[in-house]
Design a protein around this nucleic acid. Sequence first.
DNA 1: ATGGCATTGCAACAATGA
Length: 257
Amino acid sequence: MKIATWNVNSIAARLPLVTQWVKDSRPDVLCLQEIKCVDAKFPTAAFTELGYEVVTFGQPTYNGVAILSLHPISDVEKGFINDAEDAQRRLLAVTVKDVRIIDVYIPNGSEVGSEKYAYKLNWLSQLHDYFANHCDPNQKLVIGGDYNIAPADADVHDPIAWYGQILCSQPERDALQRLADWGLHDLFRRHHPAERQFSWWDYRGGGFPRNHGLRIDHLWATASLAELSKDCWIDKAPRKLERPSDHAPVIAEFQLT
DNA sequence: ATGGCATTGCAACAATGA
């Protein structure tokens, strides 16, 4: 069973590329972020034609998450428990084959010290509480998404240039560590302890050809599910195509019936 | 210090991203 995550930076702009990748890769589950459209405008039919069930939690212009699954989806939860109606749509949880799957688009944070940075740290705190109060570290659970945090310097092309900057600052990394301490394991690192690979490259300044990237898209799993994981990898191929997302998909394979 | 590139909503360029 393959579970994948991909920040597509607008599903409308990326539809041909995403459907082609889904046809080629056939993930059992795909968590999408930044769909940037309302639910009614999500191209659901393009994926049901490929055999997928689709759940969306969209909003116009910014944010929005969706999950595609080849297997039946149950127990859909949208957003945090006490979110206001107009809250930013960044969290979507489903159950597929007894695995709790949580799709997140963690806020970017703009600049360290900014209002958006405070919002990001608060959102991360809410995410921790969501796990602490609402999930069981002993269940099979995976959280996939654009975390907008490079967990360590090994996840950064130029750690000196990025030192203390947004996506790399210590408070962000500490917030991520709190989630890890709840009981989550970085599947890419588990299978590739020393590899320097990235999942996002800036559109500007030839970021991709120069491999000026960060590893900010992740699949983290509870221990019982991590034990069943066979590998986790980043597929750079779609980043090389015409009109790509600035993020590459991340995929984990599990030994599940 | 700034822009660099891309997307959306709007119908020019501002907001946002990372």
